[in-house]
Computed example of a mutant assay.
Amino acid sequence: MIVRHLDVIRDSNRNVVTDDWESARMLLKDEGMGFSFHITTLYAGKELRMHYKNHLESVYVLQGEGTIEDLATGEIHDLRPGMLYALNEHDRHVVRPKTDIITACVFNPPVTGREVHDETGAYPLPEKELAESQ
């Protein structure tokens, strides 16, 4: 059984902070759950262009408001507490937080812990998985 508290994760190296967001990585690949679980804060006033070409992601909004734009269709959806979006087709998207948005996120395959977005807006696969996928 794995039992953790968010405050402990935030004070550890499992908390990744960038200029645009902060992600507390509650569960990671090494825990063997088949997914990773994060509590992520997207900072107000930012424009986050992302494309998880190596991962599927599901995001549940706990707090805050903003929008998400599907870059394939141009559709813009409001984000507010209780909303979920799932990037089930590796969707290119832009999140625009009006206020800080706190989310619960699940990634498959799971991340290893220190990933940040690369120039394409994706989390890169670990070297071993990258070699296996080619």
Rank of each mutant, 00 (worst) to 15 (best):
E69M: 03
Q63K: 15
T67Y: 13
H51F: 08
F37Y: 15
D11W: 05
L56Q: 13
D91F: 05
E119N: 10
H77L: 06
A122D: 15
I101N: 13
I68D: 00
H93I: 03
I39M: 13
A122I: 01
R25K: 09
Y60E: 10
D100P: 08
L130G: 01
I68P: 02
D78G: 04
V111W: 10
P110R: 00
N13Q: 14
D100E: 05
H90M: 05
T112Q: 10
N108K: 08
A24Y: 00
S58D: 11
I68L: 11
G32S: 11
T40E: 01
S58I: 11
T99Y: 05
E69G: 06
P81N: 14
W21S: 15
V8M: 05
Y52V: 04
D20V: 07
V3N: 12
V59T: 07
L28I: 15
L125K: 13
R10M: 12
G64H: 13
L130D: 08
I39L: 04
D20F: 05
F107Y: 06
E89D: 10
R4E: 10
E132A: 14
Y60M: 14
E22M: 02
R10C: 08
Q134W: 10
V16M: 09
P124I: 06
H38L: 14
F107C: 04
G32H: 02
S36E: 08
H5C: 07
L42C: 01
E57W: 06
D91Q: 13
L62W: 02
R10E: 13
M1A: 11
A86P: 02
G32A: 11
V111F: 05
S23C: 04
I39S: 14
V94S: 14
T41K: 15
S133A: 08
V116L: 07
S12I: 12
Q63H: 11
N88L: 04
Y43F: 15
R10S: 06
Y85F: 09
R114S: 15
V106P: 12
D91W: 07
K29Y: 09
A44Q: 02
K46D: 05
H117R: 15
V111Y: 00
R96M: 06
G82V: 00
K98D: 15
T18L: 14
N15G: 11
E47T: 05
